[in-house]
Amino acid sequence: MNTFVINLVYLMLSTALLLSFVRMAKGPSLPDRVVALELIASIVAGIVGVHAIDTGVSSFLDVAIVLALTAFLAAIGFARFLERGGPRDD
């Protein structure tokens, strides 16, 4: 039963990852693509967390936390970039 649940979670996260890649490729605007990239980073952190639970290696949780924090800081940086006017044609 435990492996069924783990495999189901892997399948759901993989499907979400695939759909996020589609949104990142098709996104009509730059902010849509950045949000999709943020979602991809969060899903990868979730996959790493599930892998840590599956294998019992707690070091993977540290990797997932660092990945999530890095993605969050990238999103904050992009928001500040857009707030200051975005790209210019100087």
Rank of each mutant, 00 (worst) to 15 (best):
D54F: 04
L17N: 06
V57A: 14
E83V: 00
G56D: 10
L13E: 00
L61S: 11
L37C: 06
S14H: 04
H51T: 15
R88K: 15
V44P: 06
L39A: 14
K26F: 09
D62P: 08
F60M: 12
V48E: 14
P87G: 11
T15F: 14
T15S: 13
D90Y: 05
L67Y: 08
E83K: 08
I76M: 04
L17K: 01
T3C: 05
V48R: 15
V66W: 01
A52C: 00
F4S: 07
R88V: 15
A75T: 10
D54S: 13
M12T: 01
S42C: 10
L18I: 03
A71G: 11
V9L: 15
F81D: 06
A52S: 15
N2Y: 04
F78G: 11
V63Q: 06
L82F: 14
M1Y: 01
F78E: 09
G49Y: 08
L30H: 15
R33S: 08
A52K: 03
V66M: 08
H51F: 15
L73K: 01
V35P: 00
L73W: 07
F72T: 02
V5I: 15
D32R: 14
V9C: 06
E83M: 01
R84S: 06
M1F: 05
L13C: 03
V5H: 04
G86Q: 02
V34A: 08
V9K: 03
G85K: 00
D32Q: 10
G77E: 12
F78I: 00
D32A: 06
A41S: 06
R33W: 03
A25N: 07
I76D: 11
G86C: 05
L67I: 08
G85T: 11
D62S: 11
F21R: 01
V22I: 05
D89C: 04
M24L: 04
L69S: 02
V5M: 08
L19N: 02
A41E: 09
A41D: 12
V5W: 12
A41I: 02
P28W: 11
V34S: 05
L11D: 02
Y10G: 05
V66A: 01
A25K: 07
A79D: 02
T3R: 03
S42I: 11
M24H: 13
V50D: 04
I43M: 01
F60P: 10
A52E: 01
I47Q: 11
I53L: 15
T70F: 10
L61P: 09
E38W: 12
A16S: 13
I53A: 07
S29I: 00
L67Q: 12
S58L: 14
A41V: 01
L18G: 12
R80L: 09
F72V: 08
I40K: 07
V35L: 15
D54Q: 13
R80Y: 14
L8Q: 10
I47C: 02
F60G: 14
A68M: 06
I6Y: 10
V50T: 06
G27C: 00
E38V: 09
V44C: 14
D62L: 06
L37A: 07
L73E: 07
L73T: 09
D90P: 09
D54G: 13
G46H: 02
V66T: 09
H51R: 14
V35T: 12
A79Y: 13
L8C: 13
V66E: 02
R80K: 14
A45C: 06
G77M: 11
V34P: 08
V44E: 04
R80M: 11
S14T: 09
G86L: 12
V66K: 03
L61M: 03
L30A: 05
M12K: 13
